[in-house]
Computed example of a mutant assay.
Amino acid sequence: MSRNGDGAMGLDSEERERIEARAEHLLPEERSAGSDDPRAQAEAILAESDTREYVPDAAPDTHLERRTADETVPPEPSADPRPLEPPD
C-alpha cells in the first residue's frame, strides 16, 4: 500500500469520503470517549462495522440475517379492509 497525499494508506476516494463523513458525525458517546484523531477513530469504527457485516462469527453476541422478500413470512390478512393509518 502506498500513502496518498492526505496520508491515507491505499484508500479510494469513496472510502476516504465515507471515513471523513463518519468522522464529522461521531456519536456523542464516541466523542466523549475522546480521541486526538477523529478520522482514525471513524476509520476504526467503520472497519469494525464492516467486519461484523461480512464475517458472521466476528461478533458472537450479534447475528445479522440476510433474507430476500421471498424468504419472509407473508403478513396475515387483516379482517378490516380499511388501510392502516398511523396513530395520532
Rank of each mutant, 00 (worst) to 15 (best):
E53K: 00
M1C: 12
Y54D: 11
P28F: 01
P77W: 09
A21W: 00
A23F: 01
D50N: 10
P56Q: 05
L46W: 01
H63D: 08
G34E: 08
E65T: 02
R66N: 03
E48D: 12
P28G: 08
P77Y: 09
A42F: 02
A44S: 12
A33H: 00
R67W: 07
D12L: 01
P28S: 09
R67E: 11
N4E: 12
P81E: 05
M1T: 09
A40M: 12
A79F: 01
S35F: 02
I45M: 02
G5P: 04
P83F: 07
N4S: 14
P38I: 04
D61I: 00
A58Q: 09
E14A: 15
A33Y: 03
S2F: 12
D36A: 10
P83A: 10
S49R: 15
Y54G: 08
R67V: 05
E71T: 11
S13W: 00
E30I: 00
R67D: 09
A59F: 03
D12W: 03
H25W: 00
H63Y: 11
A42R: 00
E71Y: 06
G5E: 10
A69N: 11
A40L: 13
P60I: 05
T51L: 15
H25K: 03
T51A: 14
R67P: 01
E20M: 05
E29N: 14
T72S: 14
V55E: 06
G10D: 15
L84M: 11
R82Y: 11
S2V: 07
T62P: 01
L84V: 12
A21C: 10
A58L: 10
A21P: 00
E20S: 03
A79C: 00
D61A: 08
S49H: 12
A58P: 06
P81G: 06
D6R: 05
A42Q: 02
M1V: 08
L64V: 04
E30T: 01
D57N: 13
D61L: 03
M1F: 10
T68V: 13
E29L: 14
A40P: 05
D37C: 07
A23K: 01
A58R: 09
S35E: 04
P56A: 06
L46E: 00
D57V: 09
P87C: 09
R31W: 07
T72C: 15
S78I: 03
P38M: 02
E24F: 08
M9C: 14
D36G: 07
L11R: 00
L64E: 03
P74G: 03
A42T: 02
E85Q: 15
R67Y: 07
H63S: 13
E43D: 13
E29M: 14
